[in-house]
Amino acid sequence: MTKTDMRTAILEAKKAKGMTWEALAGAVGISPEFLCSACLGMNSLSAANAESCAEALGLGPDVASALTEFPKKTWDQTIPTDPLIYRFYEIVGVYGETLKEVIHEQFGDGIMSAIDFSMDVSKQEDPKGDRVVVTLNGKFLPYKSW
């Protein structure tokens, strides 16, 4: 089973069962954000977590096996047209250099890891309109001189 086939099977089963990513993550025992990324094909799971995920969705060992395979992290390099995803491109376009300047000022010359990394998405209720809170938490990796 390919990662694309796995993704389709998972999304169809999740929809059929009316499950949320949070509920599925609770059944697996990992964060909803990481589980979603793995189910969409951009990360892999341990065998135990993959089996728990497939079982919770009523899917077979072929899906569990595909979940454990290392991903090829590629995506369409064109700017997305989905409004929500596009806004993240817009945020990086407008604030990317600001983030770079502030990170370099506070940490020095380096990058934020996307490997030693976690992400949290939460809802902040507000009478003027609910807020989306996205926290990206990556280890700082300084550039080395040699």
Results as ranks from 00 to 15, higher is better:
residue 136 L to C: 13
residue 124 Q to T: 14
residue 20 T to C: 02
residue 130 D to F: 01
residue 114 A to S: 13
residue 141 L to C: 14
residue 71 P to N: 03
residue 45 L to Q: 02
residue 47 A to E: 07
residue 46 S to N: 05
residue 137 N to A: 10
residue 32 P to S: 08
residue 137 N to Q: 12
residue 132 V to W: 01
residue 75 W to L: 12
residue 42 M to Y: 09
residue 55 E to M: 12
residue 60 G to D: 14
residue 3 K to E: 00
residue 139 K to S: 01
residue 51 E to C: 05
residue 95 Y to G: 06
residue 11 L to D: 03
residue 30 I to C: 14
residue 73 K to C: 06
residue 128 K to S: 08
residue 72 K to Y: 03
residue 91 I to D: 00
residue 13 A to D: 05
residue 111 I to C: 04
residue 122 S to T: 15
residue 43 N to L: 07
residue 125 E to S: 12
residue 72 K to T: 08
residue 5 D to I: 08
residue 94 V to K: 06
residue 84 L to F: 15
residue 44 S to A: 13
residue 71 P to A: 01
residue 50 A to Y: 11
residue 133 V to P: 09
residue 101 E to C: 10
residue 72 K to I: 06
residue 74 T to W: 01
residue 127 P to W: 00
residue 5 D to V: 14
residue 29 G to R: 04
residue 84 L to Q: 11
residue 82 D to I: 15
residue 100 K to L: 07
residue 146 W to Q: 03
residue 20 T to L: 00
residue 27 A to Q: 13
residue 48 A to S: 13
residue 134 V to P: 08
residue 56 A to W: 10
residue 125 E to K: 15
residue 106 Q to E: 05
residue 37 S to E: 05
residue 118 S to N: 10
residue 34 F to W: 09
residue 90 E to D: 14
residue 29 G to Y: 10
residue 40 L to I: 08
residue 27 A to T: 09
residue 77 Q to K: 14
residue 105 E to K: 15
residue 35 L to G: 09
residue 107 F to R: 13
residue 97 E to P: 09
residue 120 D to L: 07
residue 80 P to E: 00
residue 123 K to V: 06
residue 134 V to W: 04
residue 39 C to F: 09
residue 29 G to H: 05
residue 58 G to K: 12
residue 110 G to T: 09
residue 41 G to M: 07
residue 17 K to T: 03
residue 70 F to A: 15
residue 55 E to P: 05
residue 98 T to P: 03
residue 32 P to L: 03
residue 11 L to P: 09
residue 66 A to C: 11
residue 79 I to L: 07
residue 21 W to Y: 12
residue 93 G to W: 01
residue 66 A to N: 08
residue 112 M to S: 11
residue 46 S to D: 02
residue 115 I to G: 00
residue 146 W to A: 06
residue 25 A to Q: 08
residue 70 F to T: 15
residue 70 F to D: 04
residue 85 I to H: 10
residue 40 L to T: 03
residue 104 H to N: 12
residue 10 I to L: 02
residue 125 E to P: 11
residue 70 F to C: 08
residue 111 I to W: 09
residue 121 V to M: 11
residue 93 G to D: 06
residue 40 L to N: 11
residue 50 A to W: 10
residue 84 L to V: 15
residue 28 V to K: 05
residue 46 S to F: 05
residue 107 F to C: 15
residue 140 F to C: 10
residue 2 T to C: 01
residue 1 M to W: 00
residue 78 T to K: 05
residue 33 E to L: 10
residue 15 K to L: 08
residue 13 A to T: 13
residue 122 S to A: 09
residue 141 L to Y: 03
residue 62 D to T: 15
residue 23 A to F: 00
residue 81 T to I: 07
residue 4 T to Y: 01
residue 111 I to K: 10
residue 58 G to D: 08
residue 87 R to D: 00
residue 106 Q to R: 09
residue 133 V to T: 05
residue 113 S to P: 10
residue 43 N to W: 02
residue 56 A to Q: 04
residue 110 G to M: 06
residue 130 D to Q: 03
residue 137 N to V: 09
residue 128 K to L: 04
residue 115 I to Q: 00
residue 133 V to Y: 01
residue 32 P to C: 02
residue 41 G to P: 06
residue 110 G to W: 00
residue 139 K to G: 00
residue 35 L to P: 14
residue 91 I to S: 02
residue 15 K to V: 07
residue 108 G to K: 14
residue 59 L to G: 06
residue 38 A to Y: 13
residue 143 Y to R: 15
residue 72 K to G: 02
residue 76 D to C: 10
residue 122 S to P: 06
residue 54 A to H: 07
